[in-house]
Design a protein around this nucleic acid. Structure first.
Lengths: 212, 212, 212, 212
DNA sequence: GATGAATGAGCATTCATTCAT
DNA sequence: AATGAATGAATGCTCATTCAT
């Protein structure tokens, strides 16, 4: 895991920092356009114009249109993972740990919502390689929750039967903020969502419950 | 809302039951193909071949490719709403009501997962009209949860601050079964998922909790 | 060998005689353009314009640009084979038979010189299928010579060591009329060529030679 | 004809021996690639990589892709002409002279068959200039045969009506070894071909013939 | 002289849609 | 109502060529 930012798209360009820069340009143009029109309806020509990189030149940094999804996926998942990895969780009790994790992830989701949505919606346009990379990142991501949950169980804070499933459910609730905006758009603030999620996760909805 | 099965796609065909039949053919062909290759990668030629309707004839029942998404969306959401509407909930206490609702929806999700996924993934390919219809159906859907939750609160069973948000969160957990299959695929059964969802929703994960 | 004119290029067009007609149009446009500019430099757009078939429509009769070479190859080789097959050779002595064969082939070559040249020059652009078809036709072609030569040997007219090689050499001399026009262009008439070829083949150039 | 190795492709490079060396590199890379994939399917990028000359640098020694064909044509035809010119023919009787000529040319053909084939197949991709150069070389080439034939006639060995045509026919038979490999590939050795050609040329195929 | 990045016109091919019959 | 042929704009991608350094 030397340089986890090196995205392995074949290129003949020698100047690697230029490659990085151009990928960033492509990335920014793509999320802007994909968010608006979706992957399939966005033309390479549009990406060229938006990114300021000539059509032909684009292909010095790309082998195929699908590579753009790869770039987005890599950047997005890594950005999110990093955000939540930065949380300093040691010395906190598991409840607090989980709270912080959820909080920071919700923030990340909120910040990168366009990316997340693109990844969800265009996953079926991804090739094997991209999809696999996505799954790996996802796994790594969910594992962070699993670790905290496992810790919480061991210390007697949590009562969870299937850890992996629970981790996914938590993540699902958070992702919901981005994916299922339809019915909540404008009706609920991020703050309310945060409280709501924490409340269900910890306490459920049954009345009269007394936490331990 | 005269005949909720008359889908308002303009057609010159007089025989309305024929229209219905053809739309059903198109629907079946489309979900089969869309599930496999996605909306954009599926050709009208392929739909023609799969449905057994001639390419030219297809356009007697369709004005545009997007209409197919409309058909799918209508049929799918209505099928699901109907499934959960069939549940006889009267005379049950709210906890049981919510359980049944969740159970039947999870079953519906499981049965129609291809459709649900298509709708989620291709929503950005939908036109205004289709999207609006989708939102309306979604609202109607969520309302069923809201009603039960509201009832449960009134009767002292539930403790929920934002009903709409909670309804959405519950739905999100269920939809997750279909949408977020990535990391759970093959790791968790539908039955386990059912238990897991019910458990969080009602009790949360905190240990030592005493339900009311 | 039911219908040797059925060219097996996949098409969805039902009307087979229309397919035949369109292939003919494509064929005619192609040889005109290929002769002038070569295969690679000729655009499908140009073929569309020249043939009077819309660009999109072209692809109802073609799967790939290379198919055009296939069409040309099939038509050309078959036309030539047929021309020389039509020669009624029975009851003639082998010398006369060979003469007639050479004569009619030279005529065919002359008539179809554009085609022949295209096939020679673009053979390296042909895919496996087309190339194989070409070889098969070529073989069939050469066999006609071999038969006559073999007959002539048996009847004591000819003295030939390697029949296959000799057949090819004869064909080469004839093809030369088309392929190696460079240095002979305008210097030698078809008639002179005919005489010349017959003379070498039968007698060689040695003066006063006594065979045996 | 001052320096027949100075190929008049415009270049700004002052160091003429460097130009020569680079052209040689290009030449070698090109024949390797053209033989495999043909002229049109070979990229200048590929030639750059194969020759070890940077893409940009390539254009210091080339004005256009077609120039490569020019280089090949020049080198190839000159190499062949030189080979057969080296034959010391004086003091030999014409029959022996012709034999030697044919022998050495067949050897040359065999050695340079890739080049010859490229020239034949890509002649239609050649510009005016290149084509003219090719014709000139061809003429010079054929003349060598003409001289020997003419001599042989004068001395009473040969009986030939049209000398130029006969020279071309002989050359055609030899070129056939390279051009028409299709049907003979693997069936006939170079040695057999040599014998075969000499035999037809000199004696023809008629059994017991008595020349006039 | 050499390098490597950039340019942009051009190409084969696809596909939603139309239309005559 | 149905058929099947036709249309043509649009798209991903390539590649000869140029140019700043």
């Amino acid at each position: 895991m030397r340089n986890k930012y090196v995205i392995n798209i074949h290129t003949n360009i020698k100047n690697k920092s230029l490659v990085k820069q151009r990928h960033q340009q492509i990335f920014e143009a793509a999320i802007k356009l994909f968010s608006k029109k979706g992957y399939h309806s966005t033309t390479l020509r549009e990406i060229s114009k938006e990114s300021g990189i000539t059509l032909g030149n684009l292909y010095d940094y790309l082998n195929t249109k699908e590579d753009i999804l790869y770039i987005i996926q890599e950047k997005a998942t890594k950005a999110v993972i990093e955000t939540i990895s930065k949380e300093k969780l040691e010395n906190l009790d598991p409840v607090e740990q989980l709270k912080r994790l959820i909080n920071s992830e919700l923030d990340a989701m909120n910040r990168y919502q366009d990316l997340i949505l693109i990844i969800y919606q265009e996953s079926h346009a991804m090739g094997k390689k991209t999809l696999h990379s996505l799954l790996m990142n996802e796994r790594k991501h969910v594992e962070q929750y699993e670790k905290v949950i496992r810790d919480g169980i061991k210390k007697g804070y949590f009562k969870v039967t299937n850890i992996r499933m629970m981790a996914n459910m938590i993540k699902m609730l958070i992702d919901g903020w981005v994916i299922k905006r339809w019915d909540l758009k404008g009706k609920v603030t991020l703050e309310e969502m945060r409280e709501g999620i924490l409340d269900v996760i910890f306490n459920g909805i049954l009345f009269g419950r007394v936490g331990g």
